[in-house]
Design a protein around this nucleic acid. Structure first.
Length: 760
DNA sequence: ATAACGATG
């Protein structure tokens, strides 16, 4: 449909809004040899070059705004570099406009729509992918999901054949690479926020560096916010070791931030933070405060104290100190409460009195994920909780650690978004210079890599140890991952991906859980394992408000199945589904509606993957048999996470690793069984195992024979207990006259009575 | 006898 050009309410002649037929603003464009002058002219055209539709009235207005972005003035420089190089490293500071503009420049030069290809731009976070795609769709004057779209887990907002500019999460592109290692549908791939060094971005950098050799037609742009670009330049020097990838640099557009340090180190950073916040409130000009702390409990505690002391100040000096609101911010807060950070600061108590102030006390979520306008003061104690992985005992834990210089810089920058600001660092300048690391260690050095190694195997990477990592993980971490995958039969003894492993990799799950799902039909409980795996993939569903702990614990007790926490999780999900008509059910039972909804989404997605591989969705009618089948299936995935009761009461020793652990207080078992399987090993005040289910030693010997080969065990109580179980089992086998672990023996206690067909 | 920095599929 064309534009209506005749306006019946004026006498003016019809305006020729519709350009002459055949006009093509991209006429004369030579792919990848396009100049800034050509692009600018196409942008000024009345016709949208990509849809051939007339531009909407707001298009030009938005374009005027874009022209003021720092990156816009360097379009010519960028296009020349894009023409002449396969790989570009780009540094653009906050406010440069790189995330929205560079992908568009690339589209004008690359013309992906003329070759049935796309330009991809990856983001570490889902919300960023969505919101940037929306913005760019507006700027290009197209509707979101058509020419410009986004792709994130659970939501593909693209239209095959139409979409040529796609924003997506880095994890999503990695998933796509598993099924199309050459990523043929993309003409250019842009990795944004590469300095954040997420696991997915790190793996993608390795893949793309290699892919660039195979696909000379593929262009790559690596965008980063900090000045550590040299590392990327060197890494991507594919035309020879002395030829680093070229650097394209754009200045940011932010306000100056004055940084203050303490004279002496602060022994108690929370106390010092509270003192600093109150000092700012009393003595500094109006403007909101952002304080960085490390976790939920610390934040709630600090908010209470700040509120108390601030109220006292206001009461003492109502003419000088204005009112203050203190808002906590962390990821597990319900979205409604997170919205509070955008509230206006409180009004003065009396007209003309001292103005109010807002203070946000936040985790690292405010460092990258959430931007709060109006922040003028930042208080930075210099700590955050960070994931660390210990391959020796196979444990990931969270540790309060000093932040990096880059992180400190990012935090300070949060004070200068709307006007000049101040940042108070609660450490000395000397410590900043000499003690803080330049960059936060990339995630790949701090994680359990079982999942990543399986993904790499699926991506066809043969030699994981010599893969060209930007930063190579510890060999021991890779060995641990290979060992686990070999025991799970995802990799054979030569390290080759097995058929089973290939299917496992297609599930967005840890390998243990993927294995459980795949074998679950043999145990007639795939329906239930699907639920349990979904529940294990979402954050904790149990709520325990500090002033209602008793009530919350009582509600939990009603849903608990004493045979094991995994069965309890299943019970919770089933009850949730059965009570979906009751809007207050979650709230009344102290359960997180958000987490349960998420479990529902995950379950649906996993079910689709199961259907794709024709993995039957079956169940067992008899409840006791069903529960036992489920527990046996758990052993098939988590046989390397077993603990044996030893020593004083409630003391357990993990099998083979011999870690002393205790049942976590949240555990719902009514006894302390001799053998348990656990989902998580957490290191808090002491080592705990969390989400625990009782198992039988015979199952371990039967279902995970290679791992429970007793000749690989050191002498001790665990080995003796297993030897006893082995003897008992031998007698039983003789009695019943049948083999107990042959492949022909039914694995489950009882065949399925009813078979639920998978539905969409 | 106690708990989840932030993300991703």
């Amino acid at each position: 449909m064309g534009y209506e050009t005749y306006n019946p309410y004026t006498n003016a002649p019809p305006v020729a809004a519709k350009p002459p037929a055949g006009a093509n603003p991209l006429h004369g464009f030579l792919p990848r040899k396009v100049t800034a002058e050509q692009v600018t002219r196409a942008m000024e055209s009345d016709v949208n070059p990509f849809t051939r539709q007339p531009h909407s009235p707001q298009y030009k207005k938005i374009l005027e705004g874009r022209k003021k972005l720092p990156v816009f003035g360097q379009m010519d420089e960028f296009l020349k570099m894009f023409t002449n190089n396969q790989i570009i490293v780009m540094v653009g500071e906050t406010g440069s406009g790189k995330t929205t503009q560079i992908p568009q420049f690339v589209c004008y030069s690359d013309l992906p729509h003329t070759k049935g290809q796309m330009v991809a731009c990856t983001q570490p976070r889902r919300v960023a992918a969505m919101s940037v795609a929306k913005r760019v769709a507006d700027e290009l004057d197209v509707s979101l999901g058509k020419e410009v779209g986004y792709s994130i887990r659970f939501e593909d907002m693209t239209e095959p054949g139409t979409t040529f500019m796609k924003y997506m999460t880095d994890g999503m592109l990695l998933r796509e690479a598993m099924n199309d290692p050459d990523l043929k549908r993309y003409s250019t791939i842009i990795l944004d926020e590469a300095h954040e060094r997420t696991l997915a971005t790190d793996i993608l950098m390795g893949l793309l560096k290699d892919l660039a050799k195979r696909r000379s037609d593929l262009k790559i742009v690596v965008m980063s916010a900090t000045l550590d670009a040299q590392k990327f330049q060197r890494y991507f020097s594919i035309t020879g070791p002395s030829n680093p990838a070229p650097l394209f640099k754009v200045p940011g557009r932010t306000h100056p931030v004055e940084v203050f340090y303490t004279q002496e180190p602060e022994p108690d950073y929370v106390e010092a933070a509270i003192r600093t916040v109150l000092m700012i409130h009393r003595a500094e000009d109006p403007g909101d405060i952002l304080l960085f702390l490390t976790g939920e409990e610390e934040i709630e505690d600090a908010c209470r104290k700040i509120k108390l002391e601030a109220d006292e100040l206001t009461n003492q000096d109502p003419d000088i100190v204005g009112p203050l609101t203190c808002i906590p911010l962390y990821s597990s807060l319900p979205p409604q409460q997170q919205q509070r950070i955008f509230d206006q600061p409180p009004q003065p108590r009396v007209a003309g009195g001292p103005p109010g102030r807002k203070i946000v006390v936040s985790t690292n979520i405010a460092e990258t994920s959430l931007t709060i306008d109006g922040i003028v003061y930042v208080v930075d104690p210099g700590f955050s909780k960070q994931k660390v992985y210990n391959p020796r005992i196979r444990v990931e834990s969270l540790l309060v650690s000093p932040i990096s210089k880059a992180s400190a810089q990012q935090r300070a920058g949060r004070a200068g978004r709307t006007r000049p600001g101040k940042c108070f660092r609660l450490y000395t300048e000397k410590d900043f210079m000499s003690e803080l690391e330049e960059q936060t260690h990339p995630e790949i050095l701090r994680s359990n890599l079982a999942n990543t190694v399986l993904e790499l195997a699926k991506l066809g990477i043969q030699d994981l140890v010599h893969f060209d990592y930007v930063d190579a993980p510890a060999p021991e971490t890779l060995m641990r991952a290979l060992e686990l995958l070999n025991y799970l039969a995802a990799l054979d003894d030569e390290g080759q991906l097995t058929k089973l492993g290939s299917i496992m990799a297609d599930f967005p799950l840890d390998p243990q859980m993927a294995k459980m799902l795949i074998v679950s039909p043999e145990f007639y409980c795939s329906h239930e394992i699907l639920t349990i795996v979904a529940m294990l993939s979402v954050p904790n569903v149990w709520l325990r408000p500090p002033n209602q702990r008793k009530e919350a614990d009582a509600a939990k007790a009603l849903l608990t199945i004493p045979d094991g926490d995994h069965l309890t999780l299943m019970n919770v999900y089933n009850s949730y589904v059965n009570n979906k008509h009751d809007k207050n059910w979650c709230w009344n039972n102290y359960l997180s509606a958000r987490a349960l909804q998420q479990a529902d989404n995950v379950r649906t997605q996993l079910q689709r993957t199961m259907e794709r591989y024709e993995i039957d969705l079956v169940t067992t009618a008899n409840e006791q048999k069903l529960w036992q089948n489920i527990r046996r299936t758990l052993v098939c995935g988590f046989f390397m996470q077993v603990a044996h009761k030893e020593g004083e009461k409630n003391g357990y020793l993990t099998v083979k690793d011999n870690q002393v652990v205790s049942l976590h207080p949240s555990c719902g078992l009514d006894t302390s069984p001799e053998w348990v399987i656990f989902n998580e090993f957490v290191l808090t005040t002491k080592p705990y195992i969390r989400t625990v289910t009782e198992v039988k030693p015979e199952w371990l010997l039967e279902l995970a024979a290679p791992y429970f080969d007793l000749s690989t065990f050191t002498d001790g109580e665990t080995k003796r207990a297993l030897q006893r179980a082995l003897k008992k089992r031998a007698y039983k086998t003789v009695d019943s006259g049948s083999a107990s672990n042959g492949r022909n023996t039914p694995a489950a206690e009882q065949p399925a009575k009813k078979k639920k067909k998978a539905t969409t």
